[in-house]
Amino acid sequence: MTPLAFFRSSWWLSRFSMVWGCVCIASVMVPGIVLWLLHLNHSFGIDIHNRLKPASGIHWLGTDPFGRDTLSLSLVAAVNSFTISVASMLAALFIGGGIGIIAAEMGEKTKVLANGAVELGIAFPPVITAALLVTIYGAGVIQEILALAIFFIPGFIRLSQQAASTILAQDYIAAARLAALNTRQIHFQHVLPNMVPGLLVQFSVNVALAILAETGLSYLGLGAPPPLPELGRLLASYQVHIFDHPLLVAVPGSIVLLLVLGINLLGDGLRDLFVRQETRA
């Protein structure tokens, strides 16, 4: 195999994407988790005497208008935003996946109802849902997770319903029914294992979208209240210094870019890997 053919091969490209995706995510999350643990019992203190300091050996990327280390605060905010995004996607995956499988199992009438619920859910963006939840219950992490999950549940319903319908129409499912396997055994032994690749790829893509949506919600003030730092709130508070101290906006913005890029690369690598395994099978 020539070097060019090796570079173009799906095997190499899938692992290249996965490796660099993991590198991008780890470059943010590993130091972020360490700093998050260090500041677990106390928030970042305000030091007016060191406000808006330039980059130095103590503060690698300078300080913000409250004298807090810009890089450390942004990394901790990235951990919070990433955790909220993953938690919301896990909720959307389990709820949407379960509803989709039930709809595929129970027949056409249930599919029609599920499709109607999907269309209705897509009609409401997360900003409207978050604004409604904040108005009723106040701002908080749970409200933000619910707003993101509600928006992404319809996509998982549609994907899982289509995948489950295709799998349930296969001959080996009919053979499993003739072998006296009940519905629960068929789902856990045959349906769910074959749905995992598609759902995993969709989950990774949606986590990247959820980070962008979470950043937008917190930017608009619909996220978790202070003192919990979030990337969107940092961008909102730093935007007034975009011309005199552009590094304040560049740091959290670059972290959002790295997280989204890393998750997308990881998702692309997983997709190529699953396609290659399916082709070989």
Score class of each variant (00 low, 15 high):
residue 188 F to T: 14
residue 163 A to K: 14
residue 174 A to T: 12
residue 92 A to I: 00
residue 62 G to R: 04
residue 194 N to V: 12
residue 18 M to D: 08
residue 129 T to R: 01
residue 104 A to Y: 11
residue 247 L to R: 03
residue 183 T to E: 04
residue 63 T to V: 01
residue 202 Q to A: 04
residue 77 A to T: 05
residue 275 V to I: 03
residue 54 P to Q: 11
residue 182 N to G: 13
residue 162 Q to N: 15
residue 66 F to I: 02
residue 115 N to D: 15
residue 26 A to Q: 02
residue 273 L to F: 02
residue 109 K to G: 11
residue 14 S to A: 10
residue 210 A to M: 02
residue 130 A to R: 06
residue 261 L to W: 05
residue 184 R to L: 09
residue 114 A to Q: 12
residue 277 Q to Y: 06
residue 135 T to R: 05
residue 164 A to G: 14
residue 3 P to V: 07
residue 160 S to V: 13
residue 41 N to V: 11
residue 253 G to L: 10
residue 141 V to P: 01
residue 190 H to W: 11
residue 263 I to K: 03
residue 120 L to E: 01
residue 228 L to T: 14
residue 18 M to G: 15
residue 270 L to S: 09
residue 67 G to M: 00
residue 182 N to F: 09
residue 80 N to S: 04
residue 188 F to N: 09
residue 115 N to W: 06
residue 217 L to H: 04
residue 211 I to E: 14
residue 58 I to E: 13
residue 181 L to W: 07
residue 197 P to T: 04
residue 113 L to T: 14
residue 174 A to D: 15
residue 167 I to K: 12
residue 125 P to K: 08
residue 217 L to G: 08
residue 10 S to I: 15
residue 204 S to K: 02
residue 227 P to N: 10
residue 198 G to F: 12
residue 276 R to V: 03
residue 90 L to C: 05
residue 240 V to K: 02
residue 13 L to D: 07
residue 265 L to Q: 03
residue 208 A to W: 02
residue 41 N to L: 13
residue 265 L to H: 08
residue 26 A to H: 01
residue 145 I to A: 02
residue 62 G to Q: 08
residue 217 L to S: 13
residue 58 I to S: 10
residue 113 L to D: 07
residue 145 I to F: 04
residue 189 Q to C: 13
residue 71 L to K: 06
residue 178 L to G: 09
residue 204 S to V: 03
residue 26 A to S: 10
residue 90 L to D: 00
residue 168 L to C: 08
residue 240 V to A: 08
residue 252 P to H: 12
residue 8 R to N: 15
residue 20 W to Q: 05
residue 98 G to I: 12
residue 75 L to H: 10
residue 37 L to W: 12
residue 19 V to W: 07
residue 162 Q to A: 14
residue 249 V to G: 10
residue 145 I to R: 04
residue 96 G to A: 08
residue 63 T to M: 05
residue 61 L to C: 13
residue 163 A to M: 15
residue 186 I to C: 09
residue 184 R to C: 11
residue 80 N to A: 01
residue 123 A to K: 03
residue 240 V to G: 00
residue 199 L to A: 06
residue 242 I to W: 01
residue 166 T to I: 11
residue 187 H to R: 15
residue 78 A to G: 00
residue 183 T to S: 09
residue 105 E to Q: 13
residue 163 A to P: 10
residue 219 Y to E: 09
residue 4 L to V: 07
residue 122 I to C: 04
residue 100 G to D: 09
residue 190 H to Y: 15
residue 35 L to I: 11
residue 165 S to T: 14
residue 53 K to P: 06
residue 92 A to F: 00
residue 200 L to W: 03
residue 189 Q to F: 12
residue 252 P to S: 12
residue 271 R to T: 04
residue 278 E to N: 04
residue 35 L to H: 05
residue 86 V to G: 00
residue 81 S to P: 06
residue 230 E to I: 05
residue 168 L to Q: 13
residue 147 A to K: 08
residue 272 D to R: 13
residue 26 A to R: 03
residue 187 H to M: 13
residue 24 C to K: 10
residue 89 M to T: 00
residue 151 F to Y: 15
residue 246 P to A: 07
residue 256 V to R: 14
residue 113 L to I: 14
residue 95 I to N: 05
residue 201 V to Q: 08
residue 63 T to E: 08
residue 261 L to F: 09
residue 27 S to W: 05
residue 120 L to F: 02
residue 60 W to N: 08
residue 10 S to R: 15
residue 24 C to R: 01
residue 188 F to R: 12
residue 29 M to N: 01
residue 73 L to E: 01
residue 84 I to E: 00
residue 22 C to P: 00
residue 255 I to Y: 10
residue 175 A to F: 12
residue 160 S to G: 14
